[in-house]
Amino acid sequence: AVTGSQTALLLRAFEKDRFPGIAAREELARETGLPESRIQIWFQNRR
Score class of each variant (00 low, 15 high):
residue 1 A to M: 13
residue 1 A to Q: 13
residue 2 V to H: 06
residue 2 V to S: 04
residue 2 V to F: 15
residue 2 V to G: 04
residue 3 T to F: 06
residue 4 G to S: 14
residue 4 G to M: 14
residue 5 S to Y: 15
residue 6 Q to L: 08
residue 6 Q to H: 07
residue 7 T to I: 14
residue 7 T to H: 15
residue 7 T to W: 15
residue 7 T to V: 13
residue 7 T to K: 13
residue 8 A to G: 06
residue 8 A to S: 09
residue 9 L to G: 03
residue 9 L to D: 03
residue 10 L to T: 00
residue 10 L to C: 03
residue 10 L to P: 01
residue 12 R to G: 06
residue 13 A to P: 01
residue 13 A to H: 10
residue 13 A to V: 06
residue 13 A to W: 11
residue 13 A to L: 06
residue 13 A to F: 11
residue 13 A to I: 04
residue 14 F to A: 01
residue 14 F to K: 02
residue 14 F to E: 02
residue 14 F to P: 00
residue 14 F to S: 01
residue 14 F to T: 01
residue 14 F to L: 03
residue 15 E to L: 12
residue 15 E to K: 09
residue 15 E to N: 09
residue 15 E to D: 08
residue 15 E to V: 07
residue 15 E to A: 11
residue 16 K to D: 05
residue 16 K to H: 09
residue 16 K to W: 06
residue 16 K to M: 10
residue 17 D to A: 05
residue 17 D to W: 05
residue 17 D to K: 03
residue 18 R to M: 14
residue 18 R to D: 05
residue 18 R to F: 04
residue 18 R to Q: 13
residue 18 R to A: 13
residue 19 F to L: 04
residue 19 F to M: 06
residue 19 F to K: 04
residue 19 F to Y: 13
residue 19 F to H: 09
residue 20 P to F: 03
residue 20 P to Y: 02
residue 21 G to Q: 07
residue 21 G to E: 06
residue 21 G to D: 14
residue 22 I to S: 10
residue 22 I to E: 11
residue 22 I to M: 12
residue 23 A to W: 07
residue 23 A to V: 10
residue 23 A to C: 12
residue 23 A to I: 10
residue 23 A to Y: 07
residue 24 A to V: 11
residue 24 A to K: 10
residue 24 A to F: 07
residue 25 R to V: 15
residue 25 R to A: 04
residue 25 R to T: 09
residue 26 E to P: 01
residue 26 E to Y: 08
residue 26 E to Q: 13
residue 27 E to G: 06
residue 27 E to I: 12
residue 27 E to F: 08
residue 27 E to L: 12
residue 28 L to T: 01
residue 28 L to I: 08
residue 28 L to K: 00
residue 28 L to E: 01
residue 29 A to D: 00
residue 29 A to H: 03
residue 29 A to F: 03
residue 29 A to T: 04
residue 29 A to Q: 04
residue 29 A to G: 05
residue 30 R to Q: 07
residue 30 R to W: 06
residue 30 R to M: 07
residue 30 R to K: 11
residue 30 R to E: 06
residue 31 E to W: 07
residue 31 E to C: 11
residue 31 E to I: 14
residue 31 E to N: 08
residue 31 E to H: 08
residue 32 T to N: 01
residue 32 T to D: 01
residue 32 T to E: 00
residue 33 G to C: 05
residue 33 G to W: 02
residue 34 L to F: 03
residue 34 L to G: 01
residue 34 L to D: 01
residue 34 L to M: 06
residue 34 L to T: 02
residue 35 P to M: 06
residue 35 P to Q: 07
residue 35 P to V: 05
residue 36 E to M: 13
residue 36 E to Y: 04
residue 36 E to F: 05
residue 36 E to A: 11
residue 37 S to Y: 14
residue 37 S to T: 10
residue 38 R to F: 15
residue 38 R to S: 13
residue 38 R to D: 14
residue 38 R to H: 12
residue 39 I to L: 03
residue 39 I to S: 01
residue 39 I to C: 03
residue 39 I to K: 01
residue 39 I to F: 01
residue 40 Q to S: 10
residue 40 Q to F: 12
residue 40 Q to L: 14
residue 41 I to L: 12
residue 41 I to H: 11
residue 41 I to N: 10
residue 41 I to W: 12
residue 42 W to S: 00
residue 42 W to L: 02
residue 43 F to T: 00
residue 43 F to E: 03
residue 44 Q to L: 06
residue 44 Q to K: 10
residue 45 N to I: 10
residue 45 N to L: 10
residue 45 N to A: 10
residue 45 N to T: 10
residue 46 R to E: 12
residue 46 R to K: 13
residue 46 R to D: 02
residue 46 R to I: 09
residue 47 R to V: 09
residue 47 R to A: 05
residue 47 R to G: 04
residue 47 R to P: 03
